[in-house]
Design a protein around this nucleic acid. Structure first.
Length: 370
DNA sequence: GTATGCTTTCGGC
DNA sequence: TTACGGCCGAAAGCATAC
């Protein structure tokens, strides 16, 4: 029985790097990939930026206008609209390269994947480092994209390791190094520890993963409950038994859009919402999926997010159901809002694979014959 | 008290 | 000094069940 070796491959500043690949002449310039909302020249936000732009304080999530201001002294800066289809194509080809190096493979989002490499690296970390180097070379040669890789005895360590050096990094943390590797890391590096839990732990005097490891599991289960307490305890010791496994289809499908003007008029909102319902329905149909939950979101003029949702007993795939539920939810939500709506969204989840009715009937007839 | 499931909000990219 | 997307999964908060 070999000790596990797990790898996390993270494609560096992915959207912006795809743009550099498409047009290498922009490589040494600040590159900012933007999501334009269409309501005015520069309204919208930054999806991601290359490291040249990051030196100017331009990063994911900031307004485009702020990014332009920060790049005033860089007249060669390049602002490009997001081209998701192009990035998805690049991602798909890279993911199929990565798959070839893995015993087991798990893609996480468009730019990240876990690889179980225990067998391929014969349980040895130095062989895993060679595999990682080969992966980086092949991805660079075939697709012209750099990535940062973390190698560790499990997913938890591989993920944290991948963040240590980027872009174009490779960090290996062997089992014997796990304790000192984790000891000074902030607790919020652990998946499942968000801002609230970080604050609660801070009040207990726990700031680093090393601090967390000093508390016994009984104490943690008293404070956080059995499931979470046990999980935090294991994570603090670098223990993570979760397997690397293929993910199914997305767990939710959503579409959101910015309105031309701020409004609280139901007609205007429902017109946009119905477009979004149709888009969601098309996406469902493409994958032959049903849903059991429907939700809406409204972002008001003060940029506060409000949402409502409804879950049904039985799965369906009907556009009518989406549209009717969305209407009902907007009517409920709008009366609660004091500000106008700026953006609206529609989402479905609790997805399932659509059964083929004909098969069912055939099965039924087969079974009723005997 | 803990587990589970649903709803809403948060945060990464 | 402000400025502000789209999509996803995770986290948090709550209700209910055991």
């Amino acid at each position: 029985m070999q000790a596990r070796v797990v790898m996390l491959v993270d494609l560096d500043y992915f959207y912006a790097q795809c743009e550099e690949k498409r047009d290498p002449s922009i490589k040494d310039k600040p590159v900012v990939v933007c999501v334009y909302s269409g309501r005015s020249e520069d309204s919208g936000a930054v999806a991601t930026a290359n490291y040249v732009a990051r030196k100017y304080g331009v990063k994911s999530g900031i307004p485009i206008s702020l990014a332009k201001k920060r790049l005033k002294e860089a007249p060669d800066a390049v602002f490009l609209p997001m081209d998701r289809e192009f990035y998805e194509g690049v991602s798909e080809r890279i993911m199929s390269i990565l798959r070839g190096y893995a015993d087991n493979f798990e893609q996480v989002g468009i730019d990240e994947a876990y690889l179980e490499v225990t067998a391929k690296a014969k349980g040895k970390f130095d062989e895993a480092a060679d595999v990682a180097a080969r992966i980086k070379n092949e991805v660079r040669k075939r697709e012209g994209i750099s990535c940062s890789v973390g190698v560790g005895p499990n997913k938890l360590i591989a993920k944290i390791a991948s963040d240590v050096k980027k872009p174009d990094g490779l960090t290996v943390v062997e089992s014997s190094q796990v304790e000192s590797f984790l000891s000074t890391m902030s607790v919020d590096r652990i998946l499942g520890i968000g801002s609230k839990t970080t604050k609660r732990m801070g009040l207990m005097g726990v700031k680093t993963i090393g601090d967390l490891a000093k508390h016994d599991v009984q104490m943690l289960t008293e404070v956080f409950g059995k499931t979470l307490g046990t999980y935090f305890h294991k994570a603090s010791l670098g223990i993570d038994d979760t397997p690397v496994q293929e993910r199914g289809e997305a767990e939710s499908i959503s579409r959101i859009a910015t309105l031309k003007e701020n409004t609280r008029e139901m007609d205007v909102i429902l017109e946009k919402a119905n477009q979004l319902c149709e888009e969601v329905h098309v996406a469902l149909a493409e994958h032959a999926l049903t849903f059991r939950s429907v939700g809406i979101v409204v972002i008001t003029t003060d940029l506060v997010v409000h949402s409502k949702s409804k879950t049904f007993e039985n799965p369906t795939n009907q556009l009518d159901t989406i549209e009717e539920t969305v209407k009902e939810l907007f009517e409920k939500l709008l009366v609660e809002l004091e500000k106008d709506a700026r953006r609206v969204g529609v989402k479905v989840w609790n997805l399932g694979k659509q059964q083929k009715v004909q098969e069912h009937l055939t099965d039924f007839m087969k079974s009723s014959k005997s």
